[in-house]
Design a binder for these strands. Structure first.
Lengths: 175, 175
DNA sequence: GAAAATTATATCATCGCTTATATAAGTGGT
DNA sequence: ACCACTTATATAAGCGATGATATAATTTTC
């Protein structure tokens, strides 16, 4: 039962994302979790290009392109060519997309409360923990950490030059 | 920049899994992170059926079937038909698979140390946090929590019958 | 003013895993 | 012996994202 970090992470995602997805279904909305970041920035900014959405939502441009294709199929956005620059496509919420916003906000609210109730049961809040882990990895990547450990293995007996002195501890493993 | 829980989880997975995958590459191994749970149980038990691997490794049977197909292509396992039950396939490590185990253990060790070094920088250990979150969701699923919150929305003014009284707090959102 | 470099978007393959479904191969009842 | 049911494994499609690459359109450089 001792799973790897990655496996645990994936499991958790499935638990959360599945429930959120189901919640939209129960609310009778043709809507997917992945729409939310895009929906949010469009609601806030009115009209944006694909690249700008990617920037503001903090996801990659291909992810936005794909999400927009789905959202368009669900009639949530209208996409027009820019007349100042023919490479750009200008995206905005459709009337239907706008009309959905209210019910959506209720869903988001319920989801946030659910996340709060989860955090309340934990000795340490999950979202904070994740944020801090990501920050720590920004300072030193996991790859660097692995290489450092490996260097420690190599000259375990010879030269503790770049001494890693990592505290050992149980139950971690990243796959 | 305020991402959802799911987005953060995915980001973290990418950071970890990518590094682990790269590490195998650097070590010159034809090996993927997803092999590890299967490799582990095979190393521990010698010879197992597909379903039993799934049980012991804590993943679904299709995941095992697919992983085995890849592992077989990399010559890590041998798969034979059971003679007691023709539905079953009996899997065991190939000679090459066994010979890989030593180098693999070095990799796993380095990865574990990397995970430890990460945890050491955190106010609260990541793996523990994940474990506790999963446990909490086993007690009450995220879907239930969302529904409870929604019920609270509905009769916010009428009957606080199934009173949810959830403490509000910032920065959570699950997609 | 034509070639080269940059920018915006789209497309494809991949990741590890899931659910839903299909195909075989056993088991039990009559 | 036959039909229904369960079990073991396989296959297909999907999730949300990524990196690598392709195709345009625009700007820069000489």
């Amino acid at each position: 039962m001792k799973q790897g970090l990655g496996t645990q992470l994936r499991h958790l995602i499935e638990l959360l994302d599945g429930a959120v997805d189901a919640a939209y279904g129960e609310a009778g909305l043709a809507y997917r979790p992945r729409y939310t970041p895009v929906m949010r920035v469009l609601a806030a900014h009115g009209s944006l290009t694909v690249g700008r959405i990617a920037e503001l939502a903090g996801i990659t441009q291909p992810a936005v392109t794909q999400t927009l294709a789905l959202m368009k199929a669900d009639k949530l956005v209208s996409i027009t060519a820019s007349d100042s620059d023919a490479r750009q496509r200008v995206v905005r919420l459709s009337a239907h997309g706008v009309s959905l916003l209210d019910r959506l906000r209720d869903c988001w609210d319920a989801t946030r409360q659910a996340a709060d109730s989860l955090d309340a049961e934990l000795p340490y809040p999950l979202s904070l923990c994740l944020h801090e882990a990501i920050e720590a990895l920004r300072r030193q990547s996991f790859g660097d950490r692995i290489r450092a450990a490996r260097r420690g293995q190599a000259d375990a007996h010879s030269r503790p030059d770049t001494a890693p002195d990592l505290a050992p501890s149980p139950h971690l493993e990243s796959e």
